[in-house]
């Protein structure tokens, strides 16, 4: 199954963070790529949402939708920046 981009996770990201996060810039902990979450790669369907770095494939972030809330983890993000253009 080919990947799709991080825009497909917009709804889950918004539910988790309480705001649109597709334009937020993340810094990949593996390759230092600085890019909006919208450009991350998303495979699936899966048991949860898993965002991967478009440049190196590193797992940036996971979200699991559970009754009553979302369980999130950001094992591959050194930084996440919601300023316009991610502070660039």
């Amino acid at each position: 199954m080919p990947p799709i981009d991080g825009n497909a996770a917009a709804g889950t990201l918004a539910a988790f963070f309480g705001r649109d996060m597709t334009a937020a810039h993340g810094l990949c902990a593996a390759c230092d790529q600085h890019a909006p979450l919208a450009e991350a790669l998303l495979y699936g369907p899966a048991a949860g949402t898993a965002l991967h770095c478009r440049t190196c494939g590193n797992l940036l972030m996971t979200m699991i939708e559970a009754p009553g809330g979302i369980i999130g983890a950001m094992p591959g993000l050194t930084r996440l920046d919601t300023r316009p253009a991610g502070g660039v």
Partner: peptide, 9 residues
């Protein structure tokens, strides 16, 4: 038999 995957195959 749904196919679920969190990454590339």
């Amino acid at each position: 038999f749904p196919v679920l995957t969190a990454g590339p195959t």
